[in-house]
């Protein structure tokens, strides 16, 4: 019988620690499939974040470097400038990338640093048990916004793709979602394209992936997927924000 579906080679055969219904596992798989299909595992170095995915160095089969909170783009810059022919990616959550690591992501983007950033937006801090993230939606209840996020008190949710797309450095920026199969397939294409942009040495690429956190949202996995579609996408519209290939 022909094998039509198998575990990606770029993922280690170990159990993952993520909660039931969390979409980190899908996002990991998409990254690993891209690495497999592009046959780059041997020359890829990944950078792990601080947050729920802190130990994804156990899951990705390529060489991995664990970074301090928010500093992954700076660490990746150090790696890429040392190994310009290797493929370097970071995998970061919204607290890591859009709060404590804002300076690092903005400057890596504006330098056109030839790295790929996988950005997981689930509108909450998962690892530290459900605090407000820079991406938390207005009115959203978290452990540090127990009465709902109030713009007067906490400001407004950050749209990372829109913000970075104003810079000249990025070569490719797209926002995708994992809330159903159709969108997972689109997300896969975006992740693969981001790596292709890097392989072609076109510059900075980032894919924002709208993801779930059923545990800290207080929803079951099915409800959590629905929340992406109903509440997140209206604030975080999907689509391509930068693609220098399409520019005339």
């Amino acid at each position: 019988m022909a094998v039509v579906f198998k575990a990606p080679k770029a993922l280690c055969d170990v159990p993952m620690h993520y909660c039931p219904g969390c979409t980190h596992g899908i996002a990991h798989r998409l990254v690993a499939e891209a690495i497999d299909e592009l046959e780059i595992e041997g020359r890829t170095v990944g950078v792990s974040p601080v947050g729920c995915a802190y130990n994804n160095y156990l899951y990705f089969n390529c060489d991995m470097v664990q970074a301090a909170h928010g500093r992954a783009p700076a660490v990746a810059t150090g790696i890429k400038r040392s190994l310009p022919d290797n493929i370097v990616f970071t995998y970061q959550g919204d607290g890591d990338l859009a709060a404590i690591g804002t300076a690092e992501i903005v400057h890596a983007a504006t330098r056109g640093e030839n790295i790929t950033v996988i950005f997981i937006n689930n509108t909450i801090y998962g690892m530290t048990s459900g605090q407000m993230a820079p991406t938390t939606l207005l009115g959203q209840v978290t452990t540090t916004t127990p009465y709902g996020r109030d713009a007067k008190l906490n400001g407004y949710p950050v749209r990372v793709c829109e913000m970075l797309s104003k810079l000249e450095g990025p070569a490719y920026i797209e926002r995708v979602s994992l809330h159903d199969v159709k969108h997972v397939r689109k997300a896969k294409a975006a992740v693969k394209k981001a790596f292709q942009v890097q392989i072609a040495k076109k510059g900075f690429s980032l894919v924002e992936i709208l993801s779930t956190c059923p545990t800290n949202w207080g929803l079951n996995p099915v409800e959590a997927l629905k929340r992406i579609e109903k509440e997140m996408i209206p604030h975080y519209p999907l689509g391509v924000f930068v693609d220098t290939e399409l520019e005339v």
Binding site: V45, V47, V65, A67, A68, R71, A74, V75, A76, T77, G78, I79, K80, R81, S82, L83, A103, E104, V106, H107
Partner: peptide, 16 residues
């Protein structure tokens, strides 16, 4: 962009 970024770039380069 900052000393914080610089030392983390060092961390990355030293990792290689």
């Amino acid at each position: 962009e900052s000393e914080v970024a610089a030392i983390n770039m060092v961390y990355g380069a030293a990792s290689t």
